[in-house]
Design a protein around this nucleic acid. Sequence first.
DNA 1: GTCGATTAGAGACGCACCGTCTCTAAAGGA
DNA 2: TCCTTTAGAGACGGTGCGTCTCTAATCGAC
Lengths: 204, 204
Amino acid sequence: MTADSGSTRRRGAALEADILDAVWEELAAVGYARLTMEGVAARARTGKQVLYRRWPNRAQLVKAALPHRFGTIVDQVPDTGELRADVLGVLRLMAERQRDMGSDVVVGLLGEAPELDPTTFGIMQDVTRTLLERAAKRGEIATADLPARVITVPAALLRYEMMLSRTSIEDHVLVEIVDEVFLPLVGRADTPEARTSGGDGTGL
Amino acid sequence: MTADSGSTRRRGAALEADILDAVWEELAAVGYARLTMEGVAARARTGKQVLYRRWPNRAQLVKAALPHRFGTIVDQVPDTGELRADVLGVLRLMAERQRDMGSDVVVGLLGEAPELDPTTFGIMQDVTRTLLERAAKRGEIATADLPARVITVPAALLRYEMMLSRTSIEDHVLVEIVDEVFLPLVGRADTPEARTSGGDGTGL
DNA sequence: GTCGATTAGAGACGCACCGTCTCTAAAGGA
DNA sequence: TCCTTTAGAGACGGTGCGTCTCTAATCGAC
């Protein structure tokens, strides 16, 4: 639906942008599982060869469409002055993205692109570490010097949830991850026993 | 490689068992991504129709092959008298299974079988709860009455790790999940600050 | 033991999509 | 203006899907 580019023949970056838009529309129309190179080419009004000249396969094509649509998450990290709100904000960003792109994209990509992992998934560790360091500087937590395993917990739990559920993630899940797991783990000053019984996590 | 069944025509349960064995061999030979119905049929020396008569698609077929190979995990839950060893034991069981079936099976199944989740994945919550209740009864932890979100943490983190990594999970990852995340969360009596700096988790 | 219902084994079939290849002509730079 | 690049279009062989058809082996009923 990129409106123009009606009659003239597109090239280079402009063509590429149209193609990635088409990927996005195709994703919305049929989902990742039934997205085909031919479908994308048709929607972008171009030939398959044009696609294959740029990306070796479906997974790489879709992977390229994501930042084209979203930009990097690093530019959108919240800074509210409170750790809980920061982490929750980041998780909400992730959930929102997944809602936009359809629930089967992440697991689909993962299944097809073994080499996808490090760049795409490693970023969240840096983001979370940044939030922790800010919180430590504010005195909100004792130290940001936590094991990588702990730092990656919120993103890992959320992504696991995303991969399992075909539907979009409800907000209370994010709240639970933060309040029942992450904050207790990082030892935030004012929530030592926030997790006594089976609360539904919607409080606060 | 089920040895016999050389000349006579198989039927019913015996045939089914041979097919599921063939699935397993095919999985080992080519991995989930390149496993085909035709390949399985050929290896089991039968026709595709025999497969389709029993399972509607590849995902269901493979899903059926897993318990045929492994049995249910519920029958193998360890009971060592110590929470840490119990949880670690269960995680090792999961990791071992994944090592056996190939790293791409879980994510592959997940991508193709939306309806797979609840039965297959929900079991770990009950297992972990059982371990916690035993520990509580022993007085090792204050209470087993923890939020579901916390109880599912170890299995969730491990499965996330399994889905990301193409290779098999190293044992120190399991140790980290238990020592740096799970035990601190359930508030085990004797490990209040086991998580000061970036320990490698191999201790003990 | 014979008969009838079931279903295994084998393969052909049309279909969808893959990834490659070829060709013409439009675009853009020198 | 010419020349290089490459878009747009489609054909191609190949693979695997899921369906369908046919023969004959097997099993249960009697």
